[in-house]
Simulated scan of single mutants.
Amino acid sequence: MDKKTEAFYIRLKEELQTTSTWPSVYLYKFIVPTDTQKIQAVENAFDNLGAVIKTQQSKNGNFTSISVNVVMESPDAVIAKYLEVSTVEGIISL
């Protein structure tokens, strides 16, 4: 992980610690190239967590937005999921 990415996650963790009580509901938003395997990889990362997942294709169908609403145990758990899905090629975390 480069220093810029590391700094982002440190700042995110601090923000989450001060703005929420844990466990807490967290909303993840991702954009991935429209590809069944990539969408499935993101969905699989949240399997067995009771997540509510919504997907929507872009107007031209090239990209799919994925919203995941899920109860997470801690800021560390939130960041761990971001890191887990970051391996999906072409994913953008919002």
Rank of each mutant, 00 (worst) to 15 (best):
T34C: 10
D2E: 08
F8S: 06
N44K: 11
E14V: 07
D35N: 15
N69L: 13
P33T: 04
G90Y: 05
N69G: 00
T21S: 15
M72T: 11
Q56M: 09
A41V: 02
N48H: 14
S58N: 06
N69V: 05
T5E: 12
M72F: 10
S20P: 03
K13H: 12
V42E: 02
V71E: 14
D76G: 06
N62G: 14
S74C: 09
D2W: 03
V68G: 04
I31S: 14
V52T: 12
K29T: 12
E89G: 07
A51G: 02
E14I: 05
E6W: 02
T19K: 15
T5P: 00
D76Y: 01
L49G: 00
V85Q: 03
E14Y: 05
S24E: 09
S65N: 14
V88M: 05
D76T: 11
E89Q: 14
I91M: 07
V25H: 12
L49S: 12
Y28E: 03
L49E: 12
M1C: 07
P23N: 01
V42L: 11
Y82A: 01
T5F: 05
E6D: 11
V25W: 13
W22S: 08
M72E: 13
L12N: 01
K13I: 09
N62R: 14
F30I: 09
E43W: 03
V32T: 14
I53P: 01
Y28N: 03
I31V: 15
T55L: 03
I53Q: 05
T36E: 14
E89P: 07
T5I: 09
E14S: 14
G50D: 02
G90C: 06
L16H: 08
L94V: 11
F46Q: 02
Q56Y: 04
K29Y: 00
K3H: 05
S24L: 00
V88D: 05
E6I: 03
L94R: 09
I92Q: 11
A41G: 04
D76W: 02
S20C: 10
S93E: 09
Q17Y: 07
Q17M: 12
R11G: 12
A41E: 10
N69F: 09
F46K: 02
S20T: 12
P23R: 04
T21Q: 15
F46A: 01
T19N: 13
T64K: 00
V88C: 08
T36R: 13
V85C: 04
V71L: 13
N44R: 11
D35A: 14
E43H: 13
A51D: 00
W22R: 02
T34R: 11
Q57P: 10
G90H: 10
L27V: 15
G50R: 06
T34G: 04
V32H: 03
L94K: 11
L49H: 08
S93K: 10
Y82N: 05
L94S: 11
L83M: 13
E73C: 04
K13F: 07
T64P: 08
G90Q: 05
G61P: 06
P33I: 07
T18D: 09
V32F: 06
V71W: 01
V68W: 04
T55F: 00
E84W: 03
N48F: 09
T21L: 12
S67V: 07
V71R: 13
E89S: 15
A7Q: 09
T36N: 10
Q57H: 08
I31F: 08
Q57A: 15
Q40D: 15
E84N: 08
G90N: 08
K29A: 10
Y28M: 00
